[in-house]
């Protein structure tokens, strides 16, 4: 096949310019986490003072802890509901299936602000005390669809005869689910949960409606600080979080390429041991 035309210099410059615009705010966040002065106006000198202050700031650490707990719990709950939902929805052959599938992605289509106020009104009506519990319930509303969509997509690629075979061989439906379907959709559950976790860690719009006066997550902390001026401690914290996720990503991709190479090696060995068919 003919190689596609490569980009010209001008086109690459355009690419670079747009990336520059997208990374400008990120660069500012990282740069000012190392700034000596509290003011954002100019860089007055390199210092790690904000990193030091960050670890002594108990309120900030509390917010981080809340965000992590909330992210992990809402993902765990959503993974169960979303996976079961996707598996059972793809098994249904009713006319109502379309409606159910529409409801499943509705939380992703309705604007966040509407979800936030709807949940606030709903919890208020139920007289649930606003706090960690309402945050957890609220976050599952947008976490479940992310996981459900991923799992459903991977189920569509799955061979249905596998579970039928398991059933024919006498496995109960739970056994078939646990032994056959679940392991096959696990990668999709994992990637969906990761996405949901990221969304939960970053959510501010829904959270500010349902968090109550006492509990604060990291994004809420940033939101309330913006009015009075953000301390560079938050820049430091977000820089650390970015570094952690980038490291995790790097480790993961090295691990994956390593595994790929291993597979390729095995394939080559397999091929080598087979008699050459062309002869």
């Amino acid at each position: 096949m003919k190689q596609m035309r490569a980009n010209t210099k001008l086109q690459n410059a355009y690419l670079a310019f747009l990336f520059f615009l997208m990374y400008l705010p990120v660069a500012i966040v990282i740069l000012f986490s190392f700034n000596e002065s509290k003011l954002y106006v100019s860089f007055s000198g390199f210092s790690l003072v904000w990193y030091e202050k960050l670890f002594r700031d108990s309120a900030m650490m509390e917010a981080l802890k809340n965000s992590l707990i909330l992210g992990i719990l809402s993902c765990a709950v959503s993974a169960v509901i979303g996976t079961l939902g996707a598996v059972s929805l793809s098994a249904l052959k009713l006319r109502s299936k379309g409606v159910l599938e529409y409801i499943a992605i509705l939380p992703l289509m309705v604007p966040e602000i509407i979800l936030g106020m709807v949940l606030m009104a709903f919890f208020y009506m139920l007289k649930l005390p606003f706090g960690m519990l309402t945050l957890l319930i609220g976050h599952t509303v947008f976490c479940v669809p992310y996981i459900l969509v991923e799992v459903k997509a991977s189920l569509a690629l799955m061979d249905p005869s596998l579970t039928e075979a398991a059933r024919d061989l006498g496995a109960s439906s739970w056994r078939a689910f646990l032994d056959i379907t679940l392991p096959l959709v696990m990668p999709a559950v994992a990637s969906g949960s990761l996405l949901a976790f990221a969304m939960s860690m970053d959510d501010v719009v829904i959270s500010i409606f349902i968090n109550g006066p006492r509990i604060s997550t990291l994004p809420i902390k940033v939101y309330t600080q913006i009015k009075t001026g953000v301390t560079p401690e938050i820049n430091a914290l977000c820089t650390i979080m970015l570094a952690v996720s980038l490291t995790a990503l790097a480790v993961f991709s090295i691990f994956r390429s390593h595994k790929k190479e291993e597979n390729r090696d095995e394939e080559q060995i397999d091929r080598a041991s087979e008699p050459d068919q062309e002869l």
Binding site: I81, G85, L148, F177
Partner: peptide
């Protein structure tokens, strides 16, 4: 995959 129908309840 008909057997998974009843798993729909939690969702």
């Amino acid at each position: 995959m008909k057997q998974y129908r009843h798993l729909i309840r939690p969702y």
